[in-house]
Amino acid sequence: MSSILTVRGIVKSYGVSPALRGVTIDVAEGEIVAVTGPSGCGKSTLLYCASGIMRPDAGEVTFNGSRIDTWSESRRSELRRSQFGVLFQFGQLVAELPAADNIALPLLLRGTPRRNALTAARTWLDRLGIADVAGKRPGEMSGGQAQRVALARALVTEPRILFADEPTGALDTLNGETVLNQITRVTRDQGTTVLLVTHEAKVAAYADREVPLRDGELDPSGLGLRGATPVGAA
């Protein structure tokens, strides 16, 4: 499989605090990769840099053969709207809009006629088993329902890559499992690549591969041992 996303030697600091110290990863098309590690290891920063939300201080981010870290903010925004879907832990739905409108939003922003956008939104509500919340606003939904609406919104544009930052961090076990099953099933059906950030081994177990980080660097041992490679690891 060819690489759809490559992050090479990226460095990012917040003021004087380094968050990433030269991280390189390659993600193949259709692969589900979990970036893991404890709080503060740089995994969310890696997702922000890889998805173009943030620009790294050094290093390169390549999507589908094009280097995107040098692009302007507006060009990266356009890329996110058209090619990427992003799912956060919480707080991503527009509180005033019903679920169907929330899901339709990315399509409306790129000029899809309202009727078509809402039809697509309803298809996704059906697909994720939450057709009954179509008319509800985020405040009227459970956490699990809201996160599935957010997932539908991230996938309605049929992105090439889904970026998910602790997507089940605010959910109980069963709701978290539903969301993870839906993420993996739908993205595998569509061939969508997934870069998932989590601090939980049981969430990372849904991925094809784990990339452990520690203190802003790759940590192949998964146990914070710099430079160590587990015996038998590829």
Binding site: T184, A204, L223, G232
Partner: peptide, 26 residues
Amino acid sequence: ARDYLIRQRQTHTERMRELTRVKSDP
């Protein structure tokens, strides 16, 4: 001891992926 722990961790994570595939099967 560290080398042992690293290898054991890998065995555990691989098994967790297998079990997750089992339970995610429709």
